[in-house]
Simulated assay, not measured.
Amino acid sequence: MGKKKNRPLPQSLGLPRTGMDAHAHLDAAEFDEDLDEVLVRARESGLAGVATVFLGPDPYLAGVSRFARHKDVVFLMGLHPEDAGTVKFEDIPRMEQLFRKDARLRALGEIGLDYYWDATLKDRQQQLFREQLELARHLELPVAIHSRDAEEDTLAILLDMGFHDYPLQWHCFGQSRDLALELLSHGWHLSIPGTVTYKKNIRLMEAVRAIPLDRMFVETDCPYLAADPYRGKRNEPALVVFTAQKIAEIKDLPVEEVWTACGKNALRFFGVESEGKDRGHCEDMV
């Protein structure tokens, strides 16, 4: 039998409660048994908030009640590009109604383009992307972008629709320094996942070195992509502390500085901090 790996607990970093997991999937089946415990660990590890994603109106309606007691969780909702072939005509109008009813729905996402598995639905993906961008602008909501093997088309659509300098999170950024600089030039935020901790991911480390702290989020994308030393295990919001720790190492900064800066960016982006744009009650979120 192999030797059991001794992994540090995320609480052991002793970070202040100033961080935020900017992108999670807490409605996933992997959290059916212990969601409450997962969120307790998140708070104990220094998280002031978690942004969890619902991939359409049906998942939202099926899962939102699980978070009734967890006021530090805010929501995104959007139709994922991989679902472009099965989206129903009424899904976008239904989403608009739900956004207007629930102040905890803070952003439209994750939306975008994904040509990784199947590029045959490019036209439908692009149409769905444009329709949701229009909805976001109509509702004056931030957007969270999913783009895989489709960066050129994603950028072209965003710029064609006038989203330069629009509140935008480029979710799960894992590309090059050059692309990072391009996205930054449009005023957007880049959300860094746990893959930055993987030893061979030199390209992302070089990109992170070039991204200023005031334009950066940290995210888990849980239950996927757990940071080292939990790689291969179920990911959860508490483990985002190890992503911040790696970014601090790359930038030669104190981890508390990175943690608080990235958290402040995300809290503001999702309207958790009161800056005249909060659609809910700030005191309920912390």
Rank of each mutant, 00 (worst) to 15 (best):
V87R: 13
L133E: 09
L253Q: 12
C262L: 08
P93M: 10
V208A: 10
R177P: 04
I250G: 08
A144V: 14
E44D: 13
D118I: 02
T52S: 07
L204W: 09
L13D: 04
M161A: 10
D58P: 00
V143Q: 02
L204V: 10
L204M: 08
D118T: 01
R100I: 05
F269N: 05
R66V: 04
P57L: 01
A144Y: 05
P10G: 03
C172H: 05
I111W: 00
R66Y: 09
A107L: 12
L190W: 07
S176P: 02
W117K: 11
Q132H: 12
W259E: 04
R130P: 01
D114W: 03
G187H: 00
Y224W: 14
K200L: 06
E236F: 03
P142D: 07
K101L: 15
D252H: 09
D91L: 07
G49Q: 04
D83R: 13
L213R: 00
H70Y: 08
S176T: 15
L55G: 02
Q126W: 02
D153N: 14
G46R: 13
F99G: 03
E152N: 12
P223L: 09
L253N: 03
Q245I: 08
W117G: 01
Q97F: 10
R234K: 11
V53Q: 09
L128Q: 04
S45K: 03
P57E: 06
Y224K: 04
F75M: 07
V143L: 10
L239P: 06
E249T: 12
L181W: 06
L141R: 12
G232L: 04
K5M: 14
K246R: 12
F173L: 05
D278C: 15
A150N: 03
L79C: 11
R203A: 14
D34C: 01
R104I: 00
